[in-house]
Write a protein that binds this DNA or RNA. Structure first.
Length: 474
DNA sequence: TTAAAGTCAATAGA
DNA sequence: TCTATTGACTTTAA
């Protein structure tokens, strides 16, 4: 990001002006996909930002991001969701035209926003775009227009293709057809998507509980036992770790916002929260937040924690047993000897489901639950420190910041709004509603944090083994 | 080099 | 048709 030579106050001002701009023009990007551009962060060229900045474009989006005050990502997504649903606008349209992201990414982003201070510059971009969009008084109209245009274009296309039977337009279509028609031609242009069986996921989760950062050897073993590609196992761990991390973030955010009792939730926002809350796990077993209304450990209960519990050597769990059975039948995977699948330390308790040893494996891990939740506590201070004059972006925030900070220090550093500058930005980046109030599920959160802590421990151990001298910060 | 962060895009389910 | 999930890939950061 371009470091701005401006003083903070100047940047506040310009940013304020910038974002407040009603935005007379929206040069719609021809196409949402702008990602590739990977413009150099320092680039001044405005042309590098194909998406509508919804405001004047003296600055590139990168610059905007760089000088943006801390934004309440959760509040922003909440509002965006409201606006979209209220106006019957889809994520795809919104994502492609406003954010330059695909539908899936948008869905993910809206459902699980990371706290601002946890985001990289790149990661902040969509939030800045969303904020700008929210501030644009004509945002909905514009999107509606887009929608209409798309529809029209679609109709037109369909029309022409109908009348002009032979060419179903688009060269790409040809590929698809040939692909579908003749299996032969190009051997899979695309490799088929791997879909892990529930049992495989279970096994991987248990492995994760045992070792969030498995050694290459362990990965190899897992892959062999589950009959998966090594890369699949590696990817799974990467994904799982990062998704667990995110779950923790939102847990904290929610815990924080609810602990300060915000009953002013708007219905739609509430419903959306509830919706994904009840969904349970978003990262497949990571459990977005476990049971919505405090069901302690039902079938839907926090998977992460239950996984931890499971891995603790608790009694065999029915579901799991079933899973093993399924795996046994489903996978022809010739499992190695009934030995510990893990090269794991001492206990080597983890076992992937295998034919030879159907009974539930002992599961280590429960102890985690009792661990202090220091897991993510680290950045509270740093983020707070990073909070600049620019902060104080939201009334919503400022209203709760103090409590939030005390209740959930690690969530998102919340600036204490106060200065005039902050106020001016409040109007800019202000959020109209209070945080949604939700029932806390402390234990769930605790468990997750414990898992995270476990994760950290692994890293510490790893680092220690490398004999690194480090100053640990937590 | 490795892990994290950020996305894509295929899919499933509503 | 829309949203959510998730394996894989790309980029970024350490």
């Amino acid at each position: 990001a371009p470091e701005s030579p401006m003083s903070s106050s100047e940047s506040v001002k310009s940013l304020t002006e910038l974002v407040q701009q009603p935005c007379p023009t929206i040069e719609m990007s021809k196409d949402g996909k702008s990602q590739e551009s990977s413009e150099p962060p320092a680039s001044e060229s405005q042309s590098t930002t194909p998406l509508p900045l919804s405001g004047h474009s003296a600055l590139s989006i990168q610059e905007l991001v760089a000088m943006s005050p801390e934004l309440d990502t959760y509040g922003i997504t909440k509002r965006v969701k409201e606006v979209l649903t209220d106006n019957n606008l889809g994520q795809r349209l919104f994502g492609e035209t406003i954010l330059g992201l695909t539908q899936g990414s948008v869905s993910d982003l809206l459902a699980r926003p990371k706290p601002w201070h946890k985001l990289s510059l790149k990661g902040r971009e969509p939030f800045v775009r969303m904020q700008l969009w929210l501030n644009d008084p004509n945002n909905v109209e514009k999107l509606m227009d887009m929608k209409r245009m798309e529809k029209k274009a679609y109709m037109k296309r369909r029309h022409s293709s109908v009348s002009d039977s032979q060419s179903c337009e688009s060269s790409s279509a040809g590929i698809d057809y040939s692909q579908g028609a003749s299996p032969q031609p190009q051997h899979q242009l695309k490799k088929p998507r791997v879909v892990l069986a529930p049992e495989e996921k279970e096994a991987l989760k248990r492995a994760y509980q045992q070792k969030p950062y498995p050694s290459p050897k362990t990965i190899e073993e897992l892959a062999t036992q589950l009959n998966l590609k090594t890369s699949t196992v590696i990817n799974w761990f990467h994904n799982y770790r990062s998704r667990i991390r995110r779950e923790l973030f939102i847990e904290e955010i929610q815990a924080g916002s609810q602990s300060q009792a915000g009953s002013s939730d708007s219905p739609s926002a509430r419903s959306s929260r509830a919706a994904h809350g009840s969904e349970g796990d978003s990262c497949d077993g990571v459990d977005a937040e476990g049971p919505p209304e405090g069901k302690p450990s039902g079938p839907e209960a926090d998977e992460l924690s239950s996984a931890a519990a499971k891995s603790q050597g608790g009694p065999a769990e029915p579901a799991f047993e079933a899973g093993e059975e399924a795996l046994r039948g489903a996978r022809p995977s010739e499992r190695a000897e009934p030995e510990s699948l893990e090269d794991t330390d001492d206990e080597g308790r983890l076992r992937a489901p295998r034919q030879s040893s159907p009974p539930a494996p002992p599961r280590p891990g429960d102890a985690l639950e009792t661990l202090p939740n220091s897991a993510t506590e680290g950045d509270a201070s740093t983020s707070a420190a990073s909070t600049s004059v620019l902060t104080g972006e939201s009334s919503y925030k400022s209203k709760e910041s103090s409590e939030k900070i005390s209740s959930v220090p690690s969530t998102s550093s919340t600036p204490a709004a106060g200065s005039q500058k902050a106020n001016s930005l409040q109007s800019l980046f202000g959020f109209s509603e209070a945080a949604s109030s939700r029932n806390t599920r402390d234990s769930s959160l605790r468990k997750k944090k414990a898992a995270n802590l476990n994760n950290i421990i692994h890293r510490l151990e790893k680092a220690a083994s490398r004999e690194e001298a480090v100053e640990w910060e937590f």
